[in-house]
Simulated assay, not measured.
Amino acid sequence: MHRLRHVRTKWSRWISVKVPFKRSSSRHVHGGFSLLEAMVSISIASLVLLTCSMTAIAVLRGAGRVSQVAEDWAVLDSVRRVTLADVHASSSASAFGASLVLRELSGALYTYYLNANHQLVRVKAGGGTAVSRVRYHV
Rank of each mutant, 00 (worst) to 15 (best):
Arg3Val: 07
Arg3Met: 06
Arg3Gly: 02
Leu4Phe: 09
Arg5Glu: 11
His6Ser: 03
Arg8Gln: 04
Arg8Met: 10
Arg8Leu: 13
Thr9Gln: 10
Thr9His: 01
Lys10Leu: 09
Trp11Asp: 07
Trp11Arg: 04
Ile15Phe: 00
Val17Arg: 05
Lys18Arg: 08
Val19Thr: 09
Val19Ser: 01
Phe21Ser: 07
Lys22Met: 06
Ser24Asn: 04
Arg27Lys: 04
His28Val: 03
His30Ala: 03
Gly32Phe: 10
Gly32Cys: 03
Gly32Ile: 06
Phe33Leu: 15
Leu35Pro: 00
Leu36Arg: 08
Met39Lys: 03
Ala45Cys: 11
Leu47Met: 11
Leu47Glu: 08
Val48Phe: 09
Leu49Thr: 11
Leu50Ser: 12
Thr51Ser: 11
Thr51Val: 05
Cys52Ile: 06
Ser53Cys: 08
Ser53Thr: 09
Ser53Glu: 06
Met54Tyr: 04
Met54Ser: 07
Thr55Cys: 04
Ala56His: 07
Ala56Cys: 06
Ala56Asp: 07
Ile57Trp: 03
Leu60Cys: 05
Leu60Pro: 00
Arg61Tyr: 03
Arg65Asp: 04
Arg65Trp: 04
Gln68Lys: 05
Ala70Gln: 07
Ala70Ile: 05
Glu71Pro: 01
Asp72Val: 00
Ala74Trp: 05
Ala74Val: 05
Ala74Gln: 10
Val75Ser: 00
Val75Gly: 00
Leu76Tyr: 06
Asp77Gly: 13
Val79Phe: 06
Val79Lys: 10
Val82Pro: 02
Thr83Trp: 05
Asp86Lys: 14
Asp86Val: 08
Asp86Thr: 03
Val87Cys: 14
His88Met: 08
Ser90Gln: 11
Ser92Ala: 14
Ser92Lys: 09
Ala93Ile: 05
Ala93Leu: 13
Ala93Glu: 11
Ala95Arg: 15
Phe96Gly: 04
Gly97Tyr: 07
Ala98Ser: 15
Ser99Ala: 15
Leu100Asp: 01
Leu100Lys: 04
Glu104Ala: 14
Glu104Arg: 15
Gly107Ser: 05
Ala108Asn: 12
Leu109Trp: 07
Leu109Gln: 08
Tyr110Gly: 01
Thr111Phe: 04
Tyr112Pro: 08
Tyr113His: 15
Asn115Pro: 14
Asn115Arg: 14
Ala116Val: 13
Ala116Arg: 15
Asn117Gln: 15
His118Lys: 15
His118Leu: 08
Gln119Tyr: 09
Gln119Phe: 01
Leu120Asn: 10
Val121His: 09
Arg122Lys: 15
Val123Tyr: 10
Val123His: 12
Lys124Gly: 08
Lys124Thr: 13
Ala125Val: 11
Gly126Val: 04
Gly126His: 02
Gly126Pro: 01
Gly128Thr: 05
Thr129Cys: 07
Ala130Phe: 07
Ala130Cys: 09
Ala130Arg: 15
Val131Tyr: 10
Val131Asp: 10
Ser132Pro: 09
Ser132Thr: 02
Ser132Met: 12
Arg133Phe: 12
Arg133Glu: 14
Arg133Ser: 13
Arg135Gly: 08
Tyr136Phe: 13
